[in-house]
Design a protein around this nucleic acid. Structure first.
Lengths: 341, 341
DNA sequence: TGTTCTTCTGGCAAGGCTTTCATCTAAATT
DNA sequence: AATTTAGATGAAAGCCTTGCCAGAAGAACA
């Protein structure tokens, strides 16, 4: 093991060298008005000379704040990580966190239970001042516990039956409805729906929107055209194969995620079905993947970056500011029409 | 602002309630052998009853370790973030960090300079015990400073002219060489190279490998077939357009990244060139994108997940263990042949 | 039986670094 | 001479860990 070039310069060292007390140095750092310009300058030059940097840990201890926020990914790391949604939302989060000089702590768990535990531990041990939940799922255990314990958090997503928490989201029901309505308008009636993991609220919301699109037009929701899958290419591929295998009749597919839609396209193409001509496909999230495939994927563009940004804004206003509680924000999404539908 | 349900239970509270001293409680937490089983049990039940969780900050202060490591992304956040490389490497990092109970702190900067500063600050302020650098670039300012100051770090990548630091990497030169050799073997001679941002060492390494493949066969490196671009679809698209516009003659393209390769494919297809038949395309990194495009992309599979895992192993052995210094590891990559070449 | 030595348990207090309230001194003002 | 003020200080607080010490009980010994 190597030795750290001991930069263990403390406030005391600076104080001693400058011939003042530690409290004076502290006030110089804070640019306190009661310190004379002379002293300030002197102390600052000593700080520079000695290479002094205030110890964030000690600071946190006395200030009772860690100046960091946790990112609780989504309880199915492996899966969601492959999704370009994740990098995009982190970018948004980063940008605002940086402005507030907040550190970002990532959760590292792989299962729902582990992640719930990790999140609570992060908060209880005061490692983070609050957390951003990147998704909610059915029978979410974590959200009520966070609420009960009064830990600051904000959800990117929707939580069944509670307006009592901070959240930012797009209106998945309405957005899905809009996408399906577009297909109906184009004359499609047998629209299949490739649903995501039903444990996620986002999946069921989009499925709901799919249904509502039919009902709003006075149409019946077609039978047997919903297939569950995971949020992955494999998932969409398998689900579409199942549809095809049981000779379901459909002229369009609405997938709750781009990855799923791409899997569907692959399955279709393998069976010689022309996507866009024989069968229309619509995805969700409008990730970079959609523009990579042939034909380019029609998809619902969700302002992912902004979701991340606003999540941090809400969270910081709760933790450090005096924002009202709770705060909600619903961001608009829009259908991006390309060649697949 | 909401009030945190004050779980401000400290070690003192537990001690008082249990009728012992704080030191005893501390030793119970550490499962110190000097504490009798009876006392341990009693203290533990009180801890559970009061909902006590040790304050990580205080602990860090006394232990002089933050139990967290920083992830310095790569100095061009925006760009690299879009790349599926990033989620994959984070997953690998997470998995090992979790085992060691380390927190992961993400850098949030957007420029090289900002990121260098942020990284140093993270370390100097003792927020993290060490850092993982996700890429190196030419004239890297950060690496020598980290070395000088003796801060523990590990580089995922290569740093020009220094075996003095910890790193884990794939052999980009050899791997690129192998990929291009495959094209040469197939009879291609006019192989174009779409290089990435030349500021990254990884780009120039792969370009080097491209050259070496020719030389190893006693062939001349073709003139005027190298185009610089960014690590993005747009970059590859533009670079290929430039090649086409100046009527460069080539029968194959070697791209230093899948994103770039996909951009190339798009440009080719738009001009009616059949990828895989008229022009072969080979990518790098074998990300999920490669299997999404038509035709499926032949690409160099880099063990990204493992790179992340090993990076953490090396780093922790440096920080907390007594590993030798420095440590290197070169991981093997392999060409995955699909339909584009 | 009385004395000394061990062995167990657990307490005391210092240390880690910064911030801030209450003070204090010396100079300035009234 | 009395009061205010600028400038700086001391000490406590924030929470936990750990080296060292002490008391008690049991063991060994004379």
């Amino acid at each position: 093991m190597r030795s750290v070039a001991n930069e263990n310069v403390t406030i005391k060292d600076v104080a001693k060298r400058a011939g003042v007390s530690p409290s004076t140095v502290s006030r110089v750092i804070a640019d306190h008005p009661r310190i004379s310009p002379d002293t300030k300058e002197k102390v600052r030059s000593i700080m520079a000379e000695l290479g002094y940097y205030p110890n964030a840990i000690a600071r946190s201890l006395v200030n009772q704040t860690s100046n960091s926020i946790g990112l609780i990914r989504s309880r199915l790391t492996e899966e969601n990580f492959a999704n370009p949604f994740f990098p995009a939302v982190i970018q948004g989060i980063s940008s605002v966190a940086h402005k507030h000089r907040l550190s970002l702590v990532l959760s590292t768990s792989k299962t729902f239970e582990q992640e719930d535990e990790e999140c609570l531990t992060l908060l209880r041990q005061r490692r983070v001042d609050g957390v951003i939940l990147l998704a909610s799922h059915r029978d979410d255990q974590l959200i009520p516990r966070l609420s009960q314990d009064g830990f600051p958090f904000v959800l990117i997503g929707r939580y069944e039956g509670s307006e009592e928490i901070n959240w930012v989201n797009n209106d998945n029901i309405a957005d899905a409805k809009q996408a399906v309505a577009y297909l109906l308008e184009k004359g499609h009636r047998q629209v299949a729906c490739l649903d995501g993991d039903p444990r996620y609220v986002v999946s069921s919301d989009r499925l709901l929107g799919y249904r509502e699109a039919f009902l709003a037009r006075g149409l019946q929701v077609p039978e047997g055209l919903v297939e569950n899958s995971e949020f992955s290419v494999q998932g969409g591929y398998g689900a579409t194969q199942r549809l095809l295998d049981r000779r379901a009749s459909f002229s369009a597919i609405f997938a709750v995620d781009d990855l799923v839609a791409i899997g569907a396209m692959r399955a279709l193409q393998e069976r010689g079905v022309k996507v866009g001509r024989d069968v229309a496909v619509v995805g969700f999230n409008d990730t970079i993947l959609g523009s990579c495939v042939q034909p380019a994927l029609t998809s619902v563009n969700v302002p992912i970056y902004e979701l991340g940004q606003i999540a941090v804004q809400i969270l910081t206003s709760q933790i450090y500011g005096s924002g009202v509680y709770p705060q909600h924000e619903m961001l608009p999404a829009s259908l991006v029409i390309r060649d697949s539908a």
